[in-house]
Nucleic acid binder design. Sequence first.
DNA 1: CGAATGTTTCAGATAATCGTGAAACCACCC
DNA 2: GGGTGGTTTCACGATTATCTGAAACATTCG
Lengths: 178, 178
Amino acid sequence: MSERELWRSEVLVTDLIGRLIEFWGFKRNMGRVWAILYLSPRPMTAQAIREALKLSTGAVSMTLNELARWGVVKKVWVPGDRRDYFTAETQIWKMVSRVMSERESGEILAVIDVCEEALSALDDHLESNDVEDRERAVLQRARIKALLDVARLGKQLLGALLATAKVDAEPLSRIELR
Amino acid sequence: MSERELWRSEVLVTDLIGRLIEFWGFKRNMGRVWAILYLSPRPMTAQAIREALKLSTGAVSMTLNELARWGVVKKVWVPGDRRDYFTAETQIWKMVSRVMSERESGEILAVIDVCEEALSALDDHLESNDVEDRERAVLQRARIKALLDVARLGKQLLGALLATAKVDAEPLSRIELR
DNA sequence: CGAATGTTTCAGATAATCGTGAAACCACCC
DNA sequence: GGGTGGTTTCACGATTATCTGAAACATTCG
């Protein structure tokens, strides 16, 4: 296999990750940049990334900053070189958990709040003397409770993920459903 | 609490779900429509949804069809009424698993494929007589393997989710991390 | 059949998102 | 200070996603 073909498989992987990440609501280029850093044996400069992925300077700069905000890419300092170098966070779980938590926890907490509020609002209707009103309250109560359960489970899952990520030296832990 | 306030909390919940769903890459209105159906004590017509959420006829029709394609909303027949009525799928796990599997499995399989391809491509370089080439191959091999693990785990998780959803009469099962 | 009512489709309007590249900015060196 | 990279910012244009509303279509009923 030639050098050229090797390079080709690298590009394949980066683009694939780009698409995959896009699916989860990030920009494709975020995935591509992360992936190329992840596969690079040494830190890369913005310029190298720009060339490898054929992006504009602006796009690279913004993408790198964004990735840094999510904590999945780090700036490293190479003594004697004025340029910034970048590496990828390689502990995948740590990354996933951080992204998840940042991304969802606010919304999940909001769900929990609103659901609880709605629940207590419904309680008053459980004693209404309008039959239909009561029925409706009972049903909505049950459904909102189910949502609350899901939200709580999500929160719990996040918590667990975060906790294991903290302890875990290993990159992968095992998830089991029963 | 007044009727008006009750209604208000309903709207809060629907809009919240809208935003939450948006986060996971669906249209906000899909979440809103599903949520209002989920909280409605009885099936609703397209028109009722249109009024409740202030959408155009086209938007409602398209959103409902889309939700039906994902299997999270069902058309129901109300004898003696010409209009179509709609209800929400209420088994949340069933829903989640179905959506997940449809959405991801293709991409996950693609990840597995490409990673495996890249791995075998790298194998040739492990015996290269260029030291740097060899080093690089070793590192990339390890990293791609980690990705492969994640992809496999994802696939496994999906499988488990699907399996439990099939058996499960209960709406919620328990997830545990160790 | 044809009027009445409900539903779907689709072309165009509108809005949100993304990438570009040049200009501004910054840090370092001479 | 002025020059030399390197980096960030941002107004703009391109692209894409989304919504609208009216026309086409379907179904029921008199």
